[in-house]
């Protein structure tokens, strides 16, 4: 199956949980925010949430930046 993550088509072998997907990408689920099909997901749901064919994910986290000067 295939999902779109951060604008990139990504192939997955099987339906896995969101948390598993994030860990597989080397990300700590505790430090990212995820939008699934436009809806922000609460962190507690990451483990239970199955990724499905055609889902659109946005994975976001903090980077350096911030001040206007």
């Amino acid at each position: 199956m295939e999902i779109i993550c951060n604008g990139v088509k990504t192939a997955l072998d099987a339906e896995i949980s969101l948390a598993t997907f994030l860990r597989g990408k080397g990300l700590n689920p505790d430090t990212v925010a995820v939008e699934c099909d436009g809806v922000i997901q609460a962190r507690e749901t990451y483990e239970g949430m199955r990724l499905r064919e055609g889902m659109v994910l946005e994975v976001i986290r903090f980077v350096g930046g911030g001040a206007s000067c």
């Binding site: 951060n6 903090f62 350096g64």
Partner: peptide, 20 residues
């Protein structure tokens, strides 16, 4: 207090995590 920005993660090269 420190300001931080939010960006999409580059899944091919996640790099350092500011939060850690």
């Amino acid at each position: 207090m420190v300001t931080v920005a939010l960006r999409r993660v580059d899944l091919n090269d996640p790099g350092d995590d500011l939060m850690t």
